[in-house]
Design a protein around this nucleic acid. Structure first.
Lengths: 360, 360
DNA sequence: CGATGTCATGACATCGGTGTCATATCCGAG
DNA sequence: CTCGGATATGACACCGATGTCATGACATCG
């Protein structure tokens, strides 16, 4: 591949002049510059980043490690949208002329040190760890040779993090249901060990408190298991308990859209209509489900792309040294709610005919 | 950051000896090596890939460009799993000690040249273009400075490609239905301009031909639009036509799982049961849908991870110069079918009781 | 007209490794 | 004892850019 010397020779100038044309860091006579550019085109010259970064100490690379980071495995991998975090971040970095290096742990936290080492060899200017679901992690005690930001996870070492606002999200969702006249709102929760479970439950309670409504413990039930086994039975039983309550709930919050999809099926099997007999909301706003289910499912997005972008922003500020001293270590990103047809508005009178029209 | 000179000084040896310890390319006295390793640990030394690759001319980097590559926009982005292609490829490259650089066009084909330029500056050893859905693309007439492989797309320049085996997939799917006693099989097709539409239709026909069955044109209808508008109405009408045929189909092939999900809803609305009254199969095996729908949906996977891995393999062989001369330019990857509860086996007698048990 | 400043360009060192070649040491064989 | 050969190590140049500094050609000003 052609070098800057080849170009210099072809254009009849010194390499340094070619460099100046490329970087525009000093005035070059227009005629000379034209000759240089011609030589560059003719030789299809592409400057070497390796050589450049040796002098400048800037590689323009950012590392990203995805996949299960958790040192304690055992959760079913969501397997899905953490990739949107990557996309969100990539977009921001691209705008700043930075290129993203990515590596996946393939579910083995033990591989993190070697991947980090590789990135350090490439002299990344910063590193983002992305988890598959909101969780606490523990990074190997790596001497911090570079800037690190965590996305969709956090640690107890004070590493800057960007996570979903689970508490605020559930709060808004339940507030919205209350605003639509619902008073008995059930909540099918995530598996026990998941961080989001507790946070969302707090949000659920806070919404009740804000509206002066009591929280009935009979309405909050675990709706999913971490190991996936017997999940359908669990859900069936949970709904059984909810529906046989003396004062049946008018709405059910599901821990995610997948669960909502199953709840649809179970309710249908029992001859109950959504939202006629009972309203359903999901979580994640996983569009392929929410928009294509029938009726379309109300849900709140897990703002993955936004989290990726925010994490990237944060890393850029760390690199630039412009981080505000009063920035919180953990930054929460809220997603927005899309109200679709799975929720009945009990505060208005709705005839069956109107309802049917609304739905699709 | 510490350099090899710092390490050499700390260990009381020459830089070259440190280099030898790192690379093991020449014998080093064990005592010396131990001192060097101690110095490396103590200084937290990480070798610089930039410096190394300047001499060795090997960067260990592979570039990947994702996003809509099509020069003719207008299709609804699948938005889904082209990212699994990235994962599949990443895994293979990691095994070979290569690191993946990724960039996204953000749906603008016009950005490809600049992204390619960036990768060339990083001296990638090869480049993979990934498309969001199976399509023909046209790469800018880039002087080929590096090896290129296409994934999920192909061109007319003879660039090595890895694409899904749409024809074979649909063939097997329909064959499977025929084997289960279905004779009237409808097919709800993809939008007109999509490559996969024609290929799958061929597969559908080939399966009929192989079984000696006639192909009824009334059974193949477009079930989706590229622009998403009025898609639900289109599907409703399509089903209307199918269900009012004198000899109603016993099975419907949907162009993808999303469509199958909607078909479920429409059939239910019409009081038809799946698979009691009619069997449904999807395409893509998008698990979050297929496994959680009720009844679970039979589908054939779009083997994205496998495609990524195959593309990576192919690129590695190109780089190594070990490509077989008789390799076809376009390599097709078949996905496997998972038969779930949405298909009735008409070749056996099934009582309603048994059916219900099978289902979940 | 000489001093000063600006513009355009080049010589040279340098970034941090590794390839090449030279050299020192030690061993056993002849 | 000498020599050939393996073993262990270092000196030095080089990969391809760019930062620093120097220099020559002009233009401007007092």
């Amino acid at each position: 591949m052609a070098t800057i010397y080849d170009v210099a020779k072809a254009a009849g100038v010194s390499p340094k002049t070619v460099s100046r044309v490329l970087n525009g860091d000093a005035p070059v006579n227009e005629k000379t510059a034209k000759a240089v550019r011609a030589a560059i085109d003719q030789l299809a010259y592409v400057p070497s980043n390796a050589a450049r970064s040796m002098r400048s100490q800037r590689t323009g690379l950012i590392g990203m490690i995805t996949g299960a980071i958790s040192l304690s495995p055992g959760f079913e991998a969501a397997g899905l949208p953490d990739i949107y975090i990557v996309q969100g971040a990539q977009r921001v970095f691209a705008e700043h002329g930075l290129t993203l290096l990515i590596a996946d742990t393939g579910n083995q936290a033990s591989r993190i040190p070697e991947l980090t080492q590789t990135f350090l060899e490439h002299r990344v200017e910063g590193l983002i760890h992305v988890a598959e679901f909101h969780q606490q992690i523990e990074l190997p005690p790596n001497p911090r040779q570079t800037h690190v930001v965590l996305a969709n996870c956090f640690d107890n070492q004070g590493t800057p993090s960007v996570v979903p606002d689970d508490e605020g999200g559930q709060l808004e969702l339940v507030k919205g249901l209350i605003a639509r006249g619902h008073r008995r709102i059930a909540y099918l929760m995530l598996p026990e060990r998941m961080i989001a479970r507790g946070l969302r439950l707090s949000g659920y309670r806070a919404a009740h408190k804000a509206a002066g409504l009591p929280v009935d413990p009979a309405l909050t039930i675990t709706g999913a298991l971490s190991d996936r086994a017997h999940e359908f039975d669990l859900l069936w039983d949970a709904l059984d308990r909810l529906l046989s309550l003396p004062d049946r709930p008018t709405a059910i919050c599901c821990a995610n859209d997948k669960m909502a999809m199953r709840v649809y099926a179970i309710l249908r099997e029992r001859g109950l209509s959504v939202p006629g007999d009972i309203s359903i909301v999901g979580y994640d706003d996983y569009r392929i489900i929410t928009e294509h289910l029938h009726p379309t499912l109300t849900s709140i997005e897990l703002a993955y792309a936004a989290m990726g972008a925010r994490a990237a922003d944060r890393l850029l500020r760390l690199i630039a040294g412009t981080t505000q001293s009063d920035e919180p270590v953990i930054e929460r990103v809220a997603g927005s709610i899309t109200w679709r047809n799975s929720v009945a508005d009990l505060s208005k009178v709705v005839t069956p005919f109107q309802m049917r029209r609304n739905d699709q």
